[in-house]
Write a protein that binds this DNA or RNA. Structure first.
Length: 802
DNA sequence: CAATGTCCTG
DNA sequence: CAGGACATTG
């Protein structure tokens, strides 16, 4: 009904200026029709195309390639357009605070998992895969500034409609135009964008399919257009975060750690948000340009104009029909698929994409330039009388500004996009490349693939030859499902903070929790010699730090992917490791700051009990820089040599215990060549063995006493075989997965130990407080050589295979 | 003093 | 398993 009128209303106020500027051309149809025509054709096509893919991908206002880029970005960021989260509404008030609040409870965050993605820089990308979870992740903020808000800034096209109407007195044309616009708008989900109810009515009249669209695009949720609202507080939020963190710190290093990670994430989010804003601006500008184009078409050539409309109609119609189906697919795999989806874009790789975008931009710029003169002329001829006359100067400026803005924005966008794409080329899942895959068998630490979504992307961007192989070994220490922070007692996951339990292995596994970036310094190289020789394959230390993700060469991500795609046998435990690694490394780092041993006592504040807290705090302070680095790095570096003992290392240590109960620190260094040793690490390793021994001796004593109680009289009756209870207990502890063949020698030693205990107890030596020492002395001499294979960082894989 | 190791506790 | 206390050794 009055849709039009309302339109005009809007338009006149807001866009009057722009409109007036543009209008001129239309009328006279002046200007070199030939030139503009060819150009316009091209442009038109581009526009059309852009629209079409947009639709296919997701609803977005008639924007162009840029919008696509934006979309991609957003999608990746996990800021799926319509966020469904009820809180959106209130956001205004809470601002970042709100965010913080959410994150405040790390706990629940952790449960949801996924923080991982957010965490790492690449997260943006990886996230693509995991849309849903992402949202809550640290990216609430980004979330806020999602499309809806984005749109609002554009000021929607009210203005557009306006001038069109004015210019085109023809009712028919006007109606058509409005329709088209509405449709486009509707498709693009324009909630926030004012889609006057009236217009909708109109649409209903004419096209039923529009309804679908409407449905698709639920009405705006009363968004105030304050795109920037949430941003301001970032800093504050971080500080508050800090405080919070500090307060909590004491509880667990984990928490502090987490917090740090979180901070990092937040920063990234912030960056992302800013980028988004820029994109928004760009979109706005693009929209304006588009409008101009339309006008030109209309004015210059009716037939074309009609065609255009028709085309649009067709496209739209198709889209509406397809939309349902597409949406499904789109929903499933958004990550890299966005780009292709359309025939034309199908093999679009980022490069093409960018090129295209650039081309478009140029064209637009040219067009704008051409327009300028026209405008000028028109305005002059018109004189001051017309409404648009006043706009003259402004129009010029606008054009200039627009051009500049577009250029700069484009540049930024391009960079951003490139960065994003480039970022985490994480290894893809093994299944994905059967052909490529290299013998999966040996890969150093666990490798994991992560989200499949990336396949396409990765493939395109970089032909990854990588192969990631699932390795079954990990099961070793298996951390059972371990969903939550709960640690398996037996398994040692030291201070490790489990990054995120989230791994509910979604089918899609987006999860990519591995997150993070890693920046570590990497470690020189292990001693490949022995290893490679024995292993016969690629150097273990081949992990490169994340820096060259783009490279095509294969690299393995040591971190197991939580995403479970483990084909291998042991799906049970594998992945968890990656998470822990990060933490481990961090922990190590922290620890390194102080002397783990006795010294840290002094460092710690006052209470002995609070040592942890003090330590954490001081560490944070002193090692702040390091931590930051770490956070960036951690995700990828996980297995990368360097600092920190991973769960795999623990596993390995346990297996080594079958050979040596009292390894010297030197020996440990030899066998853990992929670890950067420092006091802490050394101490930790020693401590591990100490703990192993403790357990071992406890078992021995227990069984010895049990034997005595059972009436055993002579040591002869004591034996340790693979099926004895004692062995079972030990094996359970050191070789839980039972995928390692315990050396016979160990059985002998165990038997000897048991007998020693037995004899000592029988002899009543156990009254002596240090009666065990004698036994220890005996046992320590029974250490046997540890197989060379243990020196290999990859040893686990090897060993486990057996 | 530093490195190791044990014992105990969480 | 990690921390911490404590003992031992060189």
């Amino acid at each position: 009904m009055n849709s039009l009128s309302s339109h005009s209303h809007h338009g006149s106020d807001t866009d009057s200026m722009e409109c007036s500027v543009v209008q001129p051309h239309g009328g006279p149809g002046v200007v070199s029709a030939s030139d503009s025509e060819s150009k316009s054709n091209v442009l038109r096509k581009l526009l059309k195309r852009a629209n079409s893919y947009e639709d296919t991908m997701m609803p977005f206002p008639g924007t162009t390639i840029i919008s696509q880029l934006l979309k991609n970005n957003m999608a990746k960021n996990g800021g799926p357009e319509r966020g469904e989260r009820g809180d959106r509404g209130d956001r205004g008030d809470r601002g970042d605070r709100g965010d913080r609040g959410d994150r405040g409870d790390r706990g629940d965050r952790g449960d949801r998992g996924d923080r991982g993605d957010v965490g790492f820089p690449g997260s943006g990308l990886s996230n693509a895969s995991s849309d849903a979870p992402q949202e809550d992740a640290c990216s609430n903020s980004s979330h806020d500034s999602t499309p809806q808000e984005c749109l609002s800034p554009f000021g929607r096209p009210p203005g557009l409609a306006t001038f069109d109407i004015e210019r085109l007195n023809d009712e028919h044309l006007r109606a058509k135009r409005a329709r088209v616009e509405n449709i486009i708008r509707g498709m693009s989900h324009s909630p926030s964008v004012v889609v006057p109810a009236a217009s909708r009515h109109e649409r209903e009249h004419e096209m039923d399919r529009d309804r679908e669209m409407d449905l698709d695009c639920p009405p705006p949720q009363s968004q105030q257009q304050a795109p920037s609202s949430p941003r301001g507080g970032e800093v504050c939020s971080s500080s508050s975060r800090e405080n919070k963190r500090k307060q909590r710190l004491p509880q667990q290093q984990q928490q502090s750690f987490t917090q740090l990670v979180c901070q990092r994430k937040e920063q990234k989010q912030e960056e992302r948000r800013q980028l988004k804003l820029q994109l928004e601006d760009m979109q706005k500008q693009l929209r304006q340009l588009q409008e101009k184009f339309f006008q030109i078409y209309d004015s210059t050539d009716d037939s074309e104009h009609n065609d255009l409309h028709n085309d649009l109609h067709n496209d739209i119609g198709n889209m509406s029909e397809d939309s349902p189906a597409r949406s499904d697919t789109g929903g499933d795999d958004r990550g890299g698929d966005d780009l292709r989806s359309d025939n034309e874009m199908s093999d679009l790789d980022p490069g093409h994409f960018l090129d295209r975008a650039r081309a478009l931009l140029q064209e637009q710029a040219m067009l704008a330039a051409r327009e300028k003169p026209r405008r000028e002329g028109l305005s002059r001829s018109k004189g001051q009388g017309g409404p648009g006359s006043s706009m003259h100067a402004e129009g010029k400026q606008l054009a200039e500004t627009l051009k500049q803005e577009l250029n700069s924005a484009m540049t930024q966008v391009v960079d951003t996009v490139v960065k994003v794409f480039a970022k985490p080329p994480r290894p893809t899942p093994q299944q994905a490349f059967p052909s490529l895959s290299i013998p999966p068998e040996r890969f150093p630490t666990t490798v994991n693939g992560d989200n499949p979504n990336f396949h396409t992307t990765n493939q395109r961007l970089q032909c990854f030859g990588d192969v990631i192989i699932p390795n079954p070994l990990d099961s070793f220490t298996s951390m059972p499902g371990m969903p939550g922070p709960t640690n398996d007692q037996t398994e040692a996951i030291p201070l490790v903070v489990r990054k995120t339990p989230s791994e509910h292995h979604h089918h899609h596994h987006h999860q990519s929790s591995a997150v993070g970036a890693h920046g570590g310094h990497h470690h020189p190289v292990l001693h490949p010699s022995s290893l490679s020789a024995s292993m016969g394959f690629s150097p273990p230390s081949f992990r490169h730090p994340f820096p060259l993700p783009l490279m095509g060469y294969p690299f393995q991500s040591p971190l197991g992917g939580p995403t479970g795609g483990y084909p291998g046998k042991d799906r049970s435990s594998p992945d968890s490791m990656d998470l822990s690694r990060e933490t481990t490394s961090l922990r190590t780092k922290m620890a390194s700051g102080h002397h783990m041993g006795h010294h840290h006592r002094s460092c710690s504040p006052a209470h002995p009990g609070s040592t942890a807290e003090g330590l954490s705090l001081s560490l944070i302070k002193s090692e702040c820089s390091d931590l930051q680095d770490m956070s960036d790095i951690s995700p990828y570096s996980g297995s990368n040599i360097q600092e920190g003992l991973s769960p795999n290392h623990l596993k390995k240590a346990k297996l080594m215990f079958f050979y040596t109960r009292y390894p010297s620190s030197n020996m440990l260094k030899m066998f853990f060549s992929d670890v950067k040793f420092n006091r802490c690490i050394t101490s930790q390793l020693i401590k591990w063995f100490s703990n192993f021994r403790e357990f071992y001796y406890i078992q021995m004593e227990k069984f010895a006493r049990q034997a005595i109680n059972d009436g055993v009289t002579g040591v002869e009756e004591l034996g340790v075989s693979r099926d004895s209870e004692l062995f079972r207990a030990l094996n359970m502890h050191y070789n839980k997965a039972n995928d390692f063949e315990v050396p016979e020698r160990f059985l002998e030693v165990a038997e000897i130990t048991l007998r020693e205990f037995f004899n000592a107890i029988v002899a009543g030596k156990d009254v002596d407080p240090s009666w065990k020492k004698a036994i220890y002395k005996v046992i320590c001499k029974l250490d046997s050589e540890v197989p060379e294979i243990f020196k290999s960082p990859n040893c686990l894989q090897e060993l486990l295979h057996e």
